[in-house]
Structures are given as C-alpha cells and as structure tokens.
Amino acid sequence: MSRRLRMWVLAVGGLGVAALLAAAALRLPGFGGDDHPYGERAVEASLARRTSNTIASVNFDQRAFDTLGEETILFAAVLGTVVLLRQTRDERQVRPAPERVAAPVRRYALVMLPVALLTGLYVIAHGQLSPGGGFQGGVVVATALHLLYIGADYRALERIRPVGLYEVGDAAGEAAYLILGVAGLVGGSAFLANTLLPYGTFNTLASGGTVPLLNAAVGMEVACAVVVLLARFLDQAVEIERSTGSGNDRGE
C-alpha cells in the first residue's frame, strides 16, 4: 500500500467515525434529564437483591462476567510486567544503602501503615453498601504496605513482602472469583449468577448475596497484583543494575 492510499483509508475511516459519533450525539438524551431507562432497571434489580450500592450490584451481580474480564486484564498485565522486568543475564543486583529519613516522617509512615491498611479493608468490606469495593480497597491496601518504603527504606519493605506469597495470592484471588462463578453454575442456575446465598438484610454488611464475596476475591487479587507490580518496578529502580565487564557477578 502506498503512503497516499494509506492516508485515504485513514481519512475515510476517520470521517466514518466522525459521522457516526455526530449522529449518536444528536440522539443522546439531554444532560441531567429525568428519563433513565437503564438506570431505573439497574436500581430495581439491585433493590430486589438488597444491594444498597447499585454500582456494586451492576459490577458484581448483573454484569459480573464483565468484571471477571476486567480482573483478568489486570492479572495478565501484571504477568506481562513480571516477565518484562525480570532480571536478565547482563544485569546484577546491588544492595541499596539505607536511606536517611527525618524522624517525624518515619513515625508518620509507621502509624499510617495500619490506618491505611484498615481503610483499605473497610472499603473492600463495604463495597456493597457505599462507594468502593474490591478494586479501590485493594489498591489502598497495596499502597499502605509501601509506606514502609517511603518511611524507611527498601530493605524494610522487603522484610514484610515475600513476593512469592503475593504472587500466589494474586492467582488465588483470580481463582476465587472463577470458583464462585462455577459454584453458581453447580448450585443450579448460571455462571456467576447471584442465587447461591440468601440476600440478607438491606443496608447491612451481610447483604447482596455473593456480591461481598466477589468483592473480597477482587480485593485480594488487586492488592496482591499491585504489590507484585510495584515489587518489579522497585527492583528495577533500586536494586538491579546493568553489569559492566564480565557479567559474571552475583545475579543470574
């Protein structure tokens, strides 16, 4: 294909997209109007399953299969990062020297670690009730652990962070979501159908059927995935160097 022809193909495609987009935008309902056909159905379904956060009901019940896909994207992305950022043969590991951190900052980090951890778990546990859920809470939990890197140094973080264990946790979270889906199938209805557990009392922690369980699975997967992801980035940024000379140093 010549350059000129390619530009023509691009122009035709771009014009087509622009025309479709304009046509779709003209038919959109007015901003902030009263008519929400999809919203009303979603709210009705989430109330029927006693899930007070409709978004959680949409994500983990009405369209739980969608969320499985999203979870798998993160899983695959982290797997790819682990492969790309591994220590290659011409790189070696160096021990980072301890950092000097001002005392108040160190104290703040140590006090905030459990507070942030608790906040993350709270966000995961209340996913079916208030804004939040597995993804948001999982990220908060993972960030909380890295307060040790910010408040002390990388060695302190490495002591509480056996990466292998978090890799297992990442896979276990992903597997737990699938198993809950299959359990719905075995329980007599459909894959990921919310028919397994009693719906509980509206606006309490034990409500929404399988929604809190799926939230917990996603929370575990996301927290572990982010820890593994950051571990690879930290290794590369702090520890791994391209070895000069023989390349026969400590590392593989």
Binding site: S130, T143, I150
Partner: peptide
Amino acid sequence: PSYTDLALVLAVLGPVGTLVYAR
C-alpha cells in the same frame, strides 16, 4: 453521608503521594 469515604481515602493516600514525590 457515604460520599465522605472519598474524603477519608484521600486524607489517607494524598499525603502518601506527596511523600512519594518528596522521596
């Protein structure tokens, strides 16, 4: 009232972000 969770998460993570830059 449940929107206050946003403020809570930001109060926890926002300063952590600034510490990341400072570090």
